[in-house]
Design a protein around this nucleic acid. Structure first.
Lengths: 232, 232
DNA sequence: CAGTGGTCTAGACCACTGG
DNA sequence: CAGTGGTCTAGACCACTGG
C-alpha cells in the first residue's frame, strides 16, 4: 500500500548509509531508476527530488545526480560579536564583504525599516569565517543617518555591529530566531546544500534615537548553535 | 522563459500578501488552478506543493488547501509553558502522550543526565497541538527523585514542565538552540516532511537540589519562531 | 553527440472529506 | 455523493554537460 516513490527513496538511503553509494559518487539516472523499479520517470524523479530537498543528493543538469557531502558538526555559544566569539573559541576569524552599497528602499525594505519607499539605505553583506569555514552570512540594511563613512569603511577589519555601536550606542534589540531552508544566495555564501537547515537570526537594532539597522544572520545548522543560561 | 509553476506560485503569494487570500481561507483547488492558468493539474500541483513546503499553505486530503496561519512566536529568554503560549494566541491547545515509561539509562542518557548507566529514568514523549496542528514534540528524560506519581500522571491535563515545577521549583535552565533536520520519529510526531527544518531546543532544568530533567523540544521551522527583546 | 536533469501534458485510479 | 488531494503513467520537448 506504500507509495512507490517512497520505496525508491528508502532503497537509495540504504545504499547511501551502507556505503554502496559513497559520498560524491554518481547515483543511477532517473531513467535507470525508473526502469530498475518498474515505474515511470516522474515517479523515480519524485524520489530523487525529495532526497535532494533533504540534503542527501545533489543534482546537476546535464551531468547527473550525486551523493552529497556529509555535514560537519560544531557548536557555539553566541550572544555577542561574531568575531570575538570565533576568536574565543581559538579559531581564526576572517570576513569577506560581498556587498557594500547605497541603494533605494523597495517596498519590503521600506516597511521593514519604517522608511519611505525610495529612501536611501545602506546595504551590507558579509560572510564571517571560522578557520576559513563560513559560519555566518550577514545581510544588513542600515539607516544612513547612523553610518557615517559607511561606503568606504573596511568591514573586514571591524564588524558592522562594532562599527554601528561606535557611531550610536546600541540600546535595544529585537530578535527573532527561526529554522529555515537557505535560499540560493545563502547557499552560495555559506557553501552549503539547499537541503541543509539554517539557523536564522533576524535582529532590529536601536539606539536612543531609534532604529539603526535590520540584520539577517544565517548560520549552517550543522555548525552553529545558540546557548543560554537562565536563572530564576 | 520562466517555468509555469513558478508563475502560479508567484500569483498565489501575491494574493496571500495583499490579503485576497486571507489566513485560514481556502485556496482554489488544484483542478481550478490548472484550468485558470491553462496548465495540467500536475503543474498546478507542483506550485501548491512548493508553497506547502515553504509553510505558506496547508493541504488536507479530501478537504482542500488552506492559507497557513502566520507563524507563532515563542520567547527566547523565558521558559514559557507551551500550553499557555498557544492559549494566549487564541488557539486551542491539546496534547497527545506517545510514551510515558520507566527505563534504565543507556550510555548516552547516563552522560546527559549525569547518572549511572543502568540507573532508573522516566521517559516522556508528548506532542503539543495548536488547533489540532502539531507545534511541539517534547522528548523528556526525568530523574525519578523529582517526579512522584509520574507513571500514572495525566500529561494531557498538565504539561510536564508545570508538573515538575510543582514538585521542585525550577531554579535554573541551560538552553541550546539549533536548526536541524528531523529524524523519522520527529517527522511522524510533527506530521512534517524529512526535508523541513526544525527548531530544536535542548534544555536541562535544575531545582535547588540539582538536575531535574533533560528536554528536547522540536518545532516545525515553518510554524514556530522564537522572539526576544533585549535592552541595554 | 548521447545522456542527463528540468519542465510539462492529459489522462487515470485511489483515499479521504464534507454535506 | 461530488469534490478534494495523493499517487502514478507514458509519453514529450527543452537546456545543459561531457566526451
Amino acid at each position: 500500500m506504500g507509495a512507490r516513490f517512497a520505496d525508491i527513496k528508502q532503497a537509495l538511503l540504504e545504499q547511501i548509509h551502507n556505503g554502496e553509494l559513497a559520498m560524491g559518487s554518481k547515483t543511477p539516472s532517473e531513467n535507470q531508476l525508473a526502469q530498475r523499479f518498474g515505474v515511470s520517470r516522474m515517479t523515480a524523479r519524485r524520489a530523487v527530488t525529495e532526497l535532494v530537498d533533504e540534503g542527501y543528493l545533489l543534482r546537476m543538469q546535464g551531468a547527473g545526480t550525486f551523493v552529497a557531502d556529509s555535514r560537519p558538526v560544531g557548536s557555539m555559544f553566541a550572544v555577542r560579536a561574531i568575531d570575538t566569539e570565533i576568536a574565543e573559541r581559538g579559531q581564526g576569524y576572517c570576513a569577506r564583504v560581498l556587498c557594500q552599497t547605497s541603494m533605494h528602499a523597495d517596498a519590503d525594505q521600506a516597511s521593514v525599516l519604517g522608511v519611505e519607499q525610495g529612501g536611501e539605505l545602506y546595504c551590507l553583506e558579509v560572510v564571517h569565517f571560522a578557520d576559513d569555514i563560513p559560519l555566518q552570512f550577514e545581510q544588513r540594511l542600515i539607516l544612513p543617518a547612523w553610518a557615517e563613512g559607511f561606503l568606504s569603511w573596511d568591514f573586514t577589519a571591524q564588524t558592522a555591529s562594532a562599527y554601528l555601536s561606535a557611531q550610536a550606542p546600541l540600546t535595544e534589540a529585537d530578535t527573532l530566531i527561526e529554522a529555515v531552508l537557505p535560499t540560493r544566495k545563502v547557499c552560495e555564501a555559506l557553501a552549503i546544500n539547499q537541503g541543509e537547515p539554517c539557523l536564522k537570526i533576524s535582529r532590529r537594532t536601536y539606539s536612543t534615537q531609534g532604529l539603526v539597522s535590520f540584520a539577517r544572520l544565517y548560520h549552517p545548522g550543522s555548525r552553529y548553535r545558540l546557548g543560554g543560561h537562565l536563572a530564576f
